[in-house]
Simulated scan of single mutants.
Amino acid sequence: MGENRAVTRRSVVAGAGAFGVTATLGACSSYGDDGSDSATTTASTAAATSAPASASAAASATAGTTASPAGTELGPSSEVPVGGGKIYASEKIVVTQPTAGTYKGFSAVCTHQGCTVSTVTGGKIICNCHKSHFSATDGSVVSGPAKTALPSESVTVSGDTVYLA
């Protein structure tokens, strides 16, 4: 009962360290009333609400573009030649004009390994990273190594301006 135990520096540091770890772990993993990990749920919710809702929202946030009722302004339609196209690298969009007055939009991210396509010529969208070729009319694969078409993007022309809808 009257046992004398010397308090050493080592026992104080070890005790404080154990308390600190317990407090830290407790703070990092709080649980909601339903037993779910509310810290994880809160972080996931915050990440989801801070991410752009769509490619057009991401493009709106890009410097040099403006939003209008028609969508995000990409540039003058005169820059998109008939039978060719224009790559808007910062928006990751390629706009083609397969026939006069017909504008098509596609993701400029190659479906093979994620490079940005580099040219539009001869009715083809070409990725110089690994030489995948896509149709400027519908984004389909003309020659690989890509196996998946470029995803379509909605574009419109209003007046002399191309917009990402």
Rank of each mutant, 00 (worst) to 15 (best):
Y103L: 09
P81V: 08
T102R: 06
T41P: 03
T102A: 11
A61Y: 00
S38E: 13
C110K: 00
A100Y: 07
S68C: 05
V120Y: 02
A39G: 14
Y163L: 10
A43L: 14
G101M: 12
S44R: 11
V109A: 05
A14S: 11
F134C: 02
E3R: 13
S54A: 07
T8A: 09
T8L: 07
A89Y: 08
F106A: 01
T161W: 09
G2V: 08
A47N: 13
E153S: 01
A6D: 12
I93T: 10
G32P: 09
A58R: 01
K124R: 06
C129H: 04
P69F: 05
T42Y: 13
P98E: 09
T42H: 10
L74S: 02
T41F: 06
A14Q: 14
D138C: 00
S107D: 08
T156K: 15
C127P: 05
S68W: 07
A55I: 02
A59Y: 00
L150F: 05
K92F: 03
A48I: 04
Y103N: 06
T66Q: 08
A58V: 01
A27D: 07
G84K: 07
G32E: 12
L150W: 01
K131D: 11
V141K: 07
V82L: 08
F106V: 04
K86M: 08
S30F: 06
S152M: 07
D138P: 00
G159Y: 05
S56E: 07
A27W: 13
V157I: 11
M1H: 06
D33T: 15
L74G: 00
V120W: 00
G114Q: 08
G35V: 14
T148Q: 14
T156I: 12
T102H: 08
E79S: 09
S56F: 01
R10W: 14
L74N: 01
S152G: 03
S118G: 10
A108V: 03
S60G: 14
K147S: 15
V162N: 00
G85V: 02
L25N: 09
G85C: 06
S56I: 02
D37Q: 14
C28K: 12
T161D: 07
K124E: 09
A47P: 03
S118M: 05
P76K: 15
C115M: 02
T66N: 10
A23L: 11
L150E: 03
S29H: 13
G105H: 02
K147C: 05
V13S: 10
T40P: 00
T40I: 08
S140G: 11
G75E: 03
Y103K: 09
